[in-house]
Amino acid sequence: MIGIIDYGMGNLFSVSKALERLDVPYVLTDDPEQLAQCEGLILPGVGAFPDAMKSLEETGMKEFILSKVGNGKPLLGICLGMQLLFDESEEGGFTEGLGLLPGSIVRFTGKDADGNRFKVPHMGWNHLDQHQPKSPLLDSIEDGYVYFVHSYYAQAKQQEDIIASARYETEVPAVVGRANVFGAQFHPEKSGKTGMTILRNFCNLVQERGDES
């Protein structure tokens, strides 16, 4: 069972529908007890980083996530949900994140090092450059494009946390993770077959780890 964390932010519908299409059982809830029963968690999110953190703190969800993930429960953050995994964001001033992955969330500048113009948000289909093709999340992904919509991106401190990236004004971490914590900056639920495969891979990983423990 996958638990989709409902903390009042974002597009929960499309993630839950995607799991239905994959025939993966899930609950969509803000109830920690129900979420605690799940073998894996998904943290979705569309919106502003400070609002999202505030909501996670006020609902007690921050503490819950940190304790469960600390105990090894697999977590997948999607879009804003991925950004929340990092230490901090400069969106709307400075906001502390969940601190599960080292690094900061910063805004696209709108140009690259050579001064070429780039539109913000980074919106559309971009190629996934795989840095760790053996990652369980990239299983059976050969060559794929995924759908991004975001104005901020992660500057990961550890290169080894970047499983795949996309090229825009700079290298944009697209799939990140270490141990049981994963994130996708794009929307796997809106990224056609490639996206659905990545979601499926996460669900498989949840199941395998659940079987081991």
Binding site: F13, S14, K17, A18, E20, R21, Y147, V149, H187, E189, K190, S191, G192, K193, G195, M196
Partner: peptide, 8 residues
């Protein structure tokens, strides 16, 4: 449509 399609 949202329940069927995996594109925006």
């Amino acid at each position: 449509v949202a329940g069927t399609l995996a594109i925006p």
